[in-house]
């Protein structure tokens, strides 16, 4: 078991009303799972992903990650946990425009105090693996969307995470580029990486082993 969420609630107060962003979420994810989260816009997919990724907190419930009770951990400890085990991939890639491809991929390692020689070989491996060695000195704006997303994935993978959280990773891509990314995820999943993705595409959802449908912050069914 990689993570387990029990009776999780997240809400905001607006004009005296309590608005539930996440409502009574129950979720267990095992290592090697490939989960797709689906649901209409505003149903809380991103919120759930952020909670799982520990970028956002919640108001009630339990969340344990690798048997650590996330809701009881101190900020710093929690940060160490996700730094170590989680990689993020975004719809709009979120690369740092001022850094080259090489440097973008390298960034996570900087915050984990890797030695320069280690960083070099790890980044070189990544560039190799995704066939972007030739682009390593380019800036994100010089790349196509698909290429940018590949860099985003490379960056997420560089620190060898157990879990990849991808929020509509193909949302900004054309279908051919999207397919490439999904194949990449499939391949990673086969290598043992756990993946949770948010998607609007039925087709992309079929790459996964499980589909969770969200509506108004509530899991309505799991396929």
């Amino acid at each position: 078991m990689l993570l387990q969420i029990k009776d999780l609630f997240k809400w905001v107060n607006s004009g005296g009303n309590r608005i539930f962003l996440l409502n009574d979420i129950e979720l267990t994810v095992n290592e090697g799972d490939f989960i797709s989260i689906m649901g209409p816009s505003g149903s809380g997919k991103t919120t759930l992903l952020n909670v799982i990724g520990m970028l956002d907190d919640f108001n009630e419930g339990e969340y344990s990650f690798l048997h650590e009770p996330v809701h009881k951990l101190k900020e710093k400890h929690r940060a160490n946990l996700y730094k170590e085990y989680i990689g993020f991939v975004f719809q709009s890639y979120h690369l740092i425009d001022e850094l080259t491809v090489y440097e973008n991929i390298e960034t996570p390692l900087l915050y984990k105090n890797y030695k320069s020689s280690e960083r070099k070989s790890l980044v070189a491996d990544m560039l190799d693996r995704f066939n972007i060695v030739g682009k390593k000195d380019l800036f994100p704006t010089q790349l196509s969307g698909g290429q940018q997303q590949i860099v985003g994935i490379a960056r997420a993978l560089i620190s060898n995470p157990k879990l990849i959280l991808a929020d509509e990773p193909t949302g900004n891509l054309n279908s051919k580029q999207g397919e490439e990314i999904m194949n990449l995820f499939k391949q990673l999943n086969d290598e043992g990486v756990t993946i949770i993705q948010v998607t609007h595409s039925e087709k992309n959802a079929t790459y996964g082993s499980r589909i969770i449908n969200l509506l108004d912050g509530r899991i309505i069914n799991t396929v």
Partner: peptide
Amino acid sequence: AKEVGIRKVVGAAKSQ
């Protein structure tokens, strides 16, 4: 801000 967000997501601490 965007750069800050990304750096935080990939593991930067506030002090860094």
